[in-house]
Design a protein around this nucleic acid. Structure first.
Length: 255
DNA sequence: ATGGTTGTAAAACAA
């Protein structure tokens, strides 16, 4: 079974890339973030024409998530309610092949200490409580998506230059570590130990060409999946295309 | 510290 995650930064613009990529890679499940599409405008047919089912949760201009799957998508649930703030479309979850798929677009946070940063930490708190209340770490769960956090110093191009900044700060990392303590493992790091492996490169400063990246897109899994992991990789090919997303797909294979 | 780029959508804002 192959699970994948990809922040496409506008499904409208990226649909040709996504369709080509699905044809080439044929994952069982693809979790998409930043569709930036209202549900009424979601290109469902583009996926069904390829033999994929799709469930989505979107809004105008920002955010938006979708689960694409060869298999039936059951028990779909959308959203994460935070008191006092309007809902943003950042979470969609479902059962696929006996696996609980949780597709997240964790807030970027903009700058450490900003209002958006506090929202990011608050959102992570709510996500963690949602885990504690609704799930057991003995069941097959994949938490995947754009986490907007580089878990370790090997996951960023320059740990000294970026130290303490957004996606790297100790507080963000500590918030994410709770999920590890709860029973999730970073599947990529279970299998790949090298540094310099990134999933996001800023559009600016020729960051991709210079490999000035961050590994912020993740597939974190519980032990039933971890114990059968075969492969984990980042597919940089779509990042090299004309008009690419700033993120590359991340994949795992397990039996 | 600022700026560099892309997407949305029509001037900023988010990333």
């Amino acid at each position: 079974m192959i699970l994948a995650t990809w922040n496409v930064n506008s499904l409208n613009v990226r649909l040709p890339h996504v369709v080509d990529w699905l044809k080439t890679n044929e994952p069982d499940v693809l979790a998409i973030q930043e569709t930036k599409l209202m549900d009424a405008k979601f290109p469902r047919d583009a996926f069904s024409d390829l033999g994929y089912n799709v469930e989505f949760y979107g809004e105008k201009t920002y955010n938006g998530v979708a689960i694409v799957s060869k298999h039936p998508i059951n028990s779909v649930s959308r959203g994460l309610a935070l008191q006092g703030t309007p809902q943003q479309c950042r979470l969609i979850e479902a059962e696929v092949n006996g696996i609980h798929i949780m597709n997240v677009y964790i807030p970027n946070g903009q700058e450490v200490g900003s209002e958006k940063y506090l929202y990011k930490l608050n959102w992570l708190d709510h996500l963690f409580h949602h885990f504690n209340e609704n799930h057991a770490n003995t069941t097959p769960i994949a938490l995947l998506g754009d986490f907007n956090i580089a878990p370790g110093d090997d996951d960023v191009y320059d740990p000294l230059e970026t130290r303490g900044s957004i996606m790297v700060s100790d507080v963000e990392r500590a918030s994410l570590e709770r999920f590890r303590e709860w029973g999730l493992s970073d599947s990529f790091r279970e299998l790949v130990k090298e540094s310099g492996q990134y999933s996001w490169w800023d559009y600016r400063m020729a960051a991709f060409r210079r490999n000035l990246g961050y590994r912020i897109d993740h597939i974190w899994v519980t032990d039933p999946i971890k114990s059968s992991l075969k492969r984990a990789w980042i597919d940089k090919a779509p990042r090299k295309l004309e008009r690419p997303s700033d993120h590359a797909p991340v994949l795992i294979e397990f039996v």
